[in-house]
Computed example of a mutant assay.
Amino acid sequence: MKRKMLAMSALSCIGGPALAQSSVTIYGVLDAPVEYVNNIARGAPSVVNNQLVPQSGGARVALANAGLSSPRWGLRGQEDLGGGLSALFVLEGGFGVDTGVQTSNRLFGRQAFVGLQGRYGKLTFGRQYTSIFDGFANFTPTRFAVLYEPIAWQLGVNYRSDNTVKYSGNFGPLSASAHFTFGAGAGVVGFTSLANGGAGETPGNFRDNTGYGASLTYLDGNVGATLVYDEWRPTATTGQPGTTRKFGSAVSYEIGAVKAFAGYRWNRSSFGNGNTFVRDDYWWTGVNLRVMPALGFSLAYYYADIKEARLGPTAPGTEPANPWQVTFVADYDLSKRTDVYVTTAYARNAGLNFDSSPISFATGYFPTAGQKGMYGVAVGVRHKF
C-alpha cells in the first residue's frame, strides 16, 4: 500500500491524467554479486580474415552489475473501465547496482507498453518481451538467470523488441502468446554484423527488421509443456533483410520437492544474401531441489550442436566445436523479499553463456586466446520491492 501511495504521489507531479489510474505500483529488484571469472578477455574479439582474434586478459574479481536477476525498477498500473475491461501499462528500466548507470541509455529500456485486458486476454503495444520468452520462461532451471544461463543463445537477441503488438491469454491450464514486431530497434543487442543493432521501421521497406512468433503453454499441477516459434528479419542493408527462425519445445515435471526440466530449440539465422549465419540445435536439462522451505538448489546443463556458422555474409562456413555449460545455484531466502545465493558455472568451447561461440554476444564473457574453457563463481544478495 505504501508503494502504491508513493507512486501516486510521484505521478501527481507529472499531471492530472495519471491520477485517473485506479492502481499504480512501484516495483523492482536489486541484485549485487561479487564474481570471480578465469580466462576472461579485456574486451570483445576482433575479426581478422574471417577469424575471431581474442584479446588478452586473465582472471577477474569484480562487483558485477547483475546476478540471478537483472537490477530494474518500474511502474505498472491498471484502470477498471467496466464490463470486465481494463487499461494497463508497464514502464520498466534497467541499471547496474555497481555503478547506478542506466542500461542501454534508455530510461525504460526493458519494457514500455500500454494495452487493454478483458475476459479473452490482453492486447499490448510497445517495447516488450516476445512470445518465445513467454513460452520458455517456466521451463528453464535457473529462470533466465543473468549468472549463468545462455539466454541470448536460446531465445535470440530479439527476445525483447521495440514496436511490438502482442496478444496473451490464459484459459485454465493453457496460456497462449502471439506477437508482431513492426521493426526491432537499436535496443537489440549483439549480432551487429547481421542486424546492425536493428534499425527499426524503414519507410518503403516494410519487411526490414520485422518479426513475429507465438507460444502455447500447458501448466497443470506437476506437469508442464510448451511449444514456441519465433521469426525475425534483421536488416544490415536496407531492403535486404536476413532471417532468423527458431522453434522449440520444453517439458517439466514436479514431484514433491523436485522439479525436472528438459528442452530443445532449433535455429537457423541467415544473412540478407541467404548464406547461413548460424545453424544449430540447442538442448538443455536441469533440476530444482527444495531441501527446506528457505533453501533451494538448481543444476542445469546446456549444449549446442553447431552445424554451420560464418562471421560475415561472404565468409566461408565453418563447423566450430560445440559449446556446453554446467551451472549450479544455491539460493537461501532470508525473507519473502531478500535472498542470498552462490552460483557457479563452467563452459567448454566458449566463454560463459556461450560468448564468442562462434560469434560475440553482449554479456562480455569473452575467453582469452588459446583457452577452451571458462569458470565463474559469484556470491550475491538480492532484494525485491
Rank of each mutant, 00 (worst) to 15 (best):
N105E: 12
R265Y: 02
V101S: 14
G94H: 03
V379S: 01
R127P: 07
D220P: 05
V340H: 07
Q154D: 10
T25K: 13
Y264G: 08
A300E: 01
I132S: 08
G185I: 02
M8I: 04
F206V: 11
A59Q: 12
L81H: 08
A260E: 02
R42T: 15
A257P: 15
R42Y: 05
T237D: 07
G115A: 08
S249A: 15
T226I: 03
N65R: 12
V37M: 08
K372M: 08
N170R: 15
G380V: 06
G272W: 00
F328N: 04
Y264M: 09
E319H: 15
T237A: 13
A10H: 04
P45M: 01
P203K: 11
G286H: 02
F182H: 09
G126T: 06
N50M: 06
N349V: 00
R76A: 09
L63P: 07
A178K: 10
F271C: 00
R207G: 03
G156Q: 03
F182G: 15
R337K: 13
H179A: 10
P33K: 03
G197L: 06
L123N: 04
V223F: 14
Y282V: 08
A315V: 10
M5K: 13
R290Y: 03
W324R: 13
F139E: 01
T25F: 07
F182W: 08
V157R: 08
A260F: 13
G274N: 07
F261Q: 03
G169W: 01
L219N: 12
K259T: 06
L91R: 06
N209G: 05
Y167R: 11
R119H: 13
Y341I: 07
F180D: 00
L219F: 04
S177W: 06
D80K: 13
P313F: 00
N353P: 02
N267Q: 15
V53S: 08
P45R: 01
G351Q: 09
V189C: 01
T142G: 02
F144L: 10
R233G: 03
S168T: 14
L174K: 06
Y229M: 07
G370I: 07
S252C: 09
G169P: 11
N196E: 02
T343R: 07
R382T: 05
S298C: 07
V34T: 08
S86C: 02
L227R: 03
F125G: 04
V97P: 01
V223E: 00
I255P: 00
G94M: 02
V47D: 04
R3C: 03
T103P: 00
S215W: 10
A7T: 06
R42S: 15
N39M: 05
R42M: 10
G376N: 04
V258T: 10
S177K: 11
G364N: 10
L123P: 01
V377C: 09
T142E: 05
T343S: 13
P313Q: 01
T368V: 15
T25M: 10
V258Y: 11
A7C: 03
V97M: 12
P150V: 01
T314S: 13
F136Q: 06
Q325S: 05
G169V: 06
P203S: 14
S298K: 12
